[in-house]
Design a protein around this nucleic acid. Structure first.
Lengths: 217, 217
DNA sequence: TGAGAAGTAGAATATATGTTCGTTAGAACT
DNA sequence: AGTTCTAACGAACATATATTCTACTTCTCA
């Protein structure tokens, strides 16, 4: 047998063929199909090479099962690029209250993809998206048209960026949250700008900002 | 036969089973497997219902092929969530020149997912990503740690946001580009800030900003 | 209430498909 | 040259799997 990560030409050929076949048909090829399409003289040759490929971990096989071949790689892809989506529940503006995240489960909401680099799929529960309207969030480095990703939570730890509703002003704002006694300091993400201070009981946290997506197409 | 979009309980059960089976095994189930696991009395019952499901377009079958079942839906998913990734080529700071996008094809670069909502996969050619270091891009509403998506191009139309290198200052900046005679106006995305004017021949466009990803985990 | 449609049963049949096994041809090594 | 190992052959074999056919139940609706 060759060194651990070298595949013979034939093995690579077979692997590619399987990959392509699954892509096209959504089900795996039979050994005979591989044999014929690749002009291999005998099914046993295919079987032999499949065994090698399996030992190398390039694919998995289910014994005695017709077409019981699955490519390991495609599983990895399926895992790493698993469909991570959150519902886009509506708009966020300075003046309006946020849409009710109770509709999180609503099936009719549009879904948007969230790359794992922004929010790991493991932490995607209770996360929803809102589209920003207007320029009121510019001090949070968020522009008109941006999509903000919020995790629904009513409390926050100091330093987290939250969607905060200031009750007395009936305004929603995105700022970093710092609890300071019976007051709350709301600090713009833009470090060149000054914080504002609000009475703690005048602030309702509506969610934590976990990401921002901006398209400039 | 029932109305066009009504499936019998058994049909739905079978469909769900297949879906789940494929999910788990990466290859489709055999008719007998469906029969046994769902405690159906005969394979012909399964065959009958599969035929109905196929006529409804819920799945596709390849005649006489073992396990030649593929769920239509999974194809759609495969298409709509196609893997859209771009290479992360390095960092962008105010002082440093940009990494050479020639390495675009370099296979060793880390890849990051780009949701279609940010950049449609059809327009993803020549796009690469850079991670922002420092706070020099705040006037472009871009923070330390953000990931900017750039399409490589050396010219730009007025109004596009570009990565511009100001030669005399050896600085890179992200601004909206406006050509005004032999001068160039570079306008911060933050509309509350003032533009700067530079001689046209002092500006090198390094790419167009097509998106921004910000993670706040 | 009765006939046709939709669905279920059971068994037999045909074939699609994985596996086994004895051989052979080279390559690598002694 | 002899041994050993990988890779490839070809055919026979066993069985996994789809299909077919007939008969029987339920359901639907005029």
């Amino acid at each position: 047998m060759q060194s651990i990560d070298t595949l013979s030409a034939r093995q690579r050929e077979i692997l590619d063929y399987i990959e392509q076949f699954v892509e096209q048909h959504n089900y795996p090829p039979a050994i005979r199909q591989i044999q014929e399409d690749l002009s291999i003289s005998s099914t046993s040759v295919v079987a032999y090479n499949l065994k090698v490929l399996e030992q190398r971990g390039m694919l998995r096989r289910e014994g005695k099962v017709s077409r019981g071949i699955s490519i390991a790689k495609s599983e990895v892809i399926a895992l790493s690029t698993q469909i991570s989506q959150v519902p886009l529940l509506g708009y966020i503006t300075a003046g309006q209250p946020l849409p009710d995240p109770e509709e999180l489960s609503s099936e009719n909401a549009e879904l948007i993809d969230v790359p794992a680099d922004v929010v790991p799929s493991s932490k995607l529960t209770n996360v929803y998206a809102l589209k920003v309207r207007g320029y009121s969030m510019i001090d949070a480095l968020i522009n008109d048209g941006d999509i903000v990703l919020l995790r629904y939570q009513e409390t926050a730890e100091s330093g987290e960026m939250v969607a905060a509703r200031i009750v007395s002003e009936n305004a929603v704002t995105l700022k970093r949250f710092y609890r300071e006694g019976d007051k709350v300091r709301l600090q713009p993400a833009n470090i060149t700008m000054d914080p504002i201070y609000v009475a703690a009981n005048d602030v309702r946290i509506q969610g934590r900002v976990v990401g921002v997506l901006r398209s400039m197409m």
